[in-house]
């Protein structure tokens, strides 16, 4: 399941919902991205996340489907926020549940790596030096590349559905 929203989310509630009622799940792995208060030498007082409504949801669904093609997953979740956020605020949650931990860990790592270079979001930081658009990092591109190319675009029939 994917959600793009302005409002905050409750980690416990979201993770419980992801496995409740499915006793085939033996492992659930999650990652939460947070707003930091520094960017290089500059202090950050706030961040505004812009996105491309329509394409964002499409890209997130494709990333989720790709994870489902690669690992035997029982359920996945991607929640990404947009709008104005402050240091300490939650930005993103990705989670993957599977029978065993290996698939849950790997899929979770994959979801956030692919999301960072493929989902159309942009961060504008409000810093002591003024407003600055965050520039894409080479390290993020490398993190995506290590997972290889997309698999053949086949429907995923064994895992999470909307």
């Amino acid at each position: 399941m994917i959600r793009v929203q302005q409002q905050d989310f409750d980690l416990g509630t979201e993770l419980s919902a992801l496995h409740t009622g499915n006793h085939a799940i033996g492992g659930l792995c999650s990652f939460v991205g947070l707003v930091r208060d520094v960017a290089g030498a500059d202090e950050i007082s706030a961040m505004t996340l812009e996105h491309y409504p329509g394409m964002t949801e499409k890209a997130l669904r494709e990333i989720e489907a790709e994870a489902c093609r690669r690992w035997p997953l029982e359920s996945t979740l991607i929640i990404h926020r947009y709008g104005r956020l402050e240091p300490g605020d939650q930005i993103v949650l990705v989670a993957a549940a599977s029978a065993h931990r290996e698939a849950a860990f790997d899929a979770c790592y994959f979801l956030i790596d692919w999301l960072k270079t493929k989902a159309p979001f942009w961060k504008l930081e409000d810093t002591t030096a003024g407003e600055q658009w965050v520039t894409a990092r080479d390290a993020d591109a490398a993190a995506t590349a290590r997972w290889g190319a997309a698999m053949p675009d086949e429907p995923c029939d064994h895992g999470p559905t909307e």
């Binding site: 990404h80 930005i91 956030i112 979001f121 942009w122 658009w133 520039t135």
Partner: peptide
């Protein structure tokens, strides 16, 4: 709403978007 290269075809029926490299997550 699909990433393409600059060689990709466009027509008046299309939705085209231009943006910097993405920085979500």
């Amino acid at each position: 709403q699909e990433y393409v290269s600059v060689a990709h075809a466009v027509s008046n029926e299309d939705e085209v978007a231009f943006f910097p490299p993405v920085t979500g997550g």
